[in-house]
Amino acid sequence: MSDPVLKINHLTMQFGGVVAVDNFSMHINSGEIVALIGPNGAGKTTAFNAVTGVYTPTSGTINLLGQNITGNRPDQITKLGIARTFQNIRLFSSMTVFENVLTAHHLRKTSNIFTATLRLNASEERKMREDTDALLRKVDLYDLRDEIATSLPYGKQRLLEIVRALATRPKLLLLDEPAAGMNPQETDELGAFIRRIRDEFDLTIFIIEHHMNLVMEISDRIYVIEFGKQIAEGTPSEIQNNEAVIAAYLGGDDL
């Protein structure tokens, strides 16, 4: 069997006295959609930040397709094939929808500052722009192409963040609460959208989400953490019937 796309071994992430993630291990196989759930402050976003290099783990290792990426910079990790969205949307606020997605093509440029300034990279630039337009068409955002990204409705902004991440051509896509702030209809569409991009872009997806309906519908497997520690792992039906999970989490009003 080939290496899992993502493998986290005994990850611990400590901030001063707070242990946000505590000896957490997991893996995601190619093509899977895996969810990470848990109560507020459980350490989910922190785990994402450790995987994407925003934080350097206190201990533990992170492997992407068998390669140890622990301690790499965020931009290196993105180039290696992990893209992400943010819980609190982080679009480029001075840019249009088009420019936001176009900027995500920068990491594949072959031009340098001189060739780019003197427009000797015109064909590459044209290709970037065409690819951006093609991607926007594919995900039905082309009509909003020239709008300032942060002026879009909330749900569209979440969608755009996913599309911008896709433009880096990741192998693994990390989504941090993509349904937050979406209305029920948008949430339904999001589920279908995530499945669709998984298939069309050959992705493996790691998702943090509080909408249980969405999680149960799209996930192949689910990890549950509380206080940074794993309390359960399994298929959606296994998780729904897990006593510890129900006690810690699903019993609450999140369901």
Binding site: T52, G53, V54, R73, P74, D75, Q76, T78, K79, A83, R84, F86, R90, L91, F92, S93, S94, M95, E99, L102, T103, A104, H106, L107, R164, A165, T168
Partner: peptide, 19 residues
């Protein structure tokens, strides 16, 4: 564009592969 991305949001720029 990469520079503007850095100005707008350093963390997002890094996540787009911009060093």
């Amino acid at each position: 564009r990469a520079l503007r991305a850095i100005k707008d949001d350093e963390i997002a720029a890094e996540a787009m592969g911009i060093r």
